[in-house]
Design a protein around this nucleic acid. Structure first.
Lengths: 392, 392
DNA sequence: TTTGTAAGGAAGGTCTACTAACAAACATGT
DNA sequence: ACATGTTTGTTAGTAGACCTTCCTTACAAA
């Protein structure tokens, strides 16, 4: 074997260079914030607990937990709930609990072109106030103003301290809340989060609607840590969860699967249809809610089922490589149940199992998303919980 | 809109429950370890630097960096290189550098069924010693003993302190170095890392060979942080990098794309062939090195190119959903260049661009892997660098 | 009543990184 | 030649964060 051209050896003289990622230093206070999030996360997921419970769960000592809880009590995020009712051996525990109804989150969903939906929510996702504005056709700065006004009204109507604002929008959105590209609102490089923070004086988080849905399903809907949530509405999108974290991708466009080609000339029983994007045979031409309705309109239930199953098989074909490459635990379908939760979903499941090796397809679950139409709002709330409190 | 069945609201009484991941507490010493890795990582990627350089790069103060460097000097991981040659304004800087040739890593590659390849490497991936054992047919415990003996010999032949052992093996391997399933060696649930650590008294890291290749390409080969490295050899595998981290997947089987179905009855110009896995039309039946050689044997160069292009199109079809879902920056092909680096690679690239939306396919790169046949060994070394020094 | 167990708090110690201040060593301008 | 400004690396002191150890409180079980 010739080793002279070893590219590793060739680099020995000069160091191994790479575009350095902004790896952040860690200060003691960051450790503190992390452990604080651990405590909050425990209370969020497990409910009222004693300090000793939290200590066991987090691995921190009781002393440290007491200290953190004291700080949280002072902040008002946590409340003393008195002694635990059930009594075991030893000194009875005093419970502390997250004051989830004593803090509010303002959330906005921009998925609907005609109407902007907003709400005030508690930390556990209960809707306290609901508002909407009809902003048909508003684009550019006008659309930003629309969102601004809605947020302001919601903040005013919140009866508790508002922890932050979460916004779910279609389009390509970067981690800093800048809308890189959202054709439906005419936003290109719009610094939405920064602008709203300036106006409202509150932390604002913005993310793609398919991604927020995925977050919502993970936090409130029991989705697995390695999952794909396919959202079917006017278009088709997806949120990807890998190891419990949202995948954003190189250009912040992860999950944009609506315009993957799935219908070819040689696809049995199908003809590629033109897509709004200018190409043909895109997933959206067969799987979007309008496309599904159009394709099943006027058919007998049997024929409609067959049609839906056919679409399910196409989706399954497309997802099989994704499921295999990431070894996903779950594929969730979010959208109209009358279209998705039947032969379509079953066809996706069987196709995925047929087209992947057993170790991949064996314990893969294909199910409907657990959350209803408020999933995007709930996910927007998770943006805030995650960003401000570290709860995931 | 009916909101009564809101599953979020329904959960308000009980807390939001989920399978808790082992979220680790962070102690001051962990912060220290993290910052230490930051210093080492800077020296690894940027080469000899002054303490002030490191401080600017990491965001830590010069005082802290001096302290960390002092500790690393005491450990012998870093050396004082004297004053910088070029002189600028101000006090001349004293350079410190990673003593990459003064420490060794022992690496083993188990991809070859007939021979086990091993090497002693420096921290920058230079091969110092090369050894191999012919272990045709060794399985189960005998195969473990084979690896054990090879490691021991390599450790003995290492002329510098050995930081750890890295092993690259086909099969499904969990994060703790347990081989869940490796049919070629007859390993099922084999705790390889633990066993070797016990015998050698050194830190041992084990990972799937496609994954180690991906790590090697990332660290030594300049691969992007969001990339897929497709490895073509006896079979077909892949390593997935998302945000610079290896994806392991729900059942540690991420990257197992060799048995995704890519050939159907309706695939133009192709007939599904039976696969060793018992199904038909798997990616391995067309893309493995033997399959490619068989399909192109005896053909004119033009016909061979057409055949390779056809396989490239099939691969492109399979990868388009993956590239879209994750918004990957790069797809790397690792394997025989005479088969892959031509019409096949070009077909993959054009197919991917044709079948994805512009925002996804626009700046996607499809190229050959930068590292040669030692890529797996280099990746195994990265396992150790990453696990012991925190360098990625 | 005694014993054992568990919860929570107080005191003291160690570790970590920061700020402030300074000396050393050099380039540059007058 | 000499003062000035710049950059480096170190010393000293401070604040934060978590730990270990010990104590008190409160209850169940024997």
């Amino acid at each position: 074997m010739s080793r002279t051209s070893n590219p590793i050896a060739a680099r020995t003289a000069s160091p191994v260079q790479r575009q350095l990622r902004p790896t952040a230093k860690v200060l003691p206070e960051h450790a503190r914030a992390h452990n604080r999030s651990l405590v909050l996360g425990h209370l969020f997921h497990e409910g009222p607990s004693s300090r000793a419970d939290i200590a066991r769960s987090t691995g921190l000592t009781r002393v440290t937990v007491s200290d953190l809880v004291a700080a949280l009590l002072a902040e008002g995020l946590v409340a003393d709930l008195g002694v635990r009712a059930e009594s075991r051996v030893g000194k009875p525990a005093t419970l502390v609990g997250l004051r989830s109804s004593e803090h509010h989150v303002v959330v906005v969903d921009l998925a609907d072109d005609a109407t902007v939906h907003g709400a005030v929510m508690t930390l556990v996702g209960d809707v306290v106030v609901r508002e909407h504005v009809t902003g048909a056709g508003a684009t550019g700065t006008a659309a930003v103003t629309l969102v601004e006004d809605l947020c302001r009204r919601l903040v005013e109507r919140a009866s508790r301290p508002v922890i932050g604002v979460g916004i779910s929008s279609p389009g390509v959105i970067d981690a800093g809340g800048r809308v890189v590209e959202a054709p439906n609102r005419g936003w290109y490089g719009e610094p939405l989060a920064a602008r709203l923070t300036g106006v409202l004086g509150l932390p604002v988080h913005v993310a793609n609607d398919a991604n927020t849905r995925a977050l919502g399903e993970y936090t409130y809907g029991g989705a697995a840590a390695d999952a794909m949530i396919v959202t079917v509405g006017q278009g088709v999108g997806a949120g990807m969860l890998v190891d419990g974290a949202l995948v954003r991708g190189r250009g912040h466009a992860a999950g944009e699967i609506g315009h993957v080609t799935v219908v070819d000339e040689d696809t049995a029983g199908e003809t590629p249809e033109p897509c709004a994007c200018g190409r043909t045979g895109c997933l959206e031409t067969v799987l979007s809610a309008p496309a599904l309705r159009r394709r099943t309109a006027g058919l007998t239930p049997q024929d409609a089922d067959a049609t839906l199953a056919s679409v399910g098989r196409m989706l399954g074909r497309a997802l099989a490589p994704v499921v295999s490459a990431l070894n996903l635990a779950e594929v969730l379908l979010s959208g109209p149940p009358e279209l998705l939760d039947g032969s379509l979903r079953e066809a996706v499941a069987t196709t995925l199992r047929d087209r992947t090796m057993p170790v991949i397809g064996h314990d893969l679950r294909v199910r409907m998303a657990a959350l209803d139409e408020d999933a995007a709002l709930a996910g927007a709330a998770v943006l805030v919980l995650s960003g401000q409190l570290g709860i995931t």
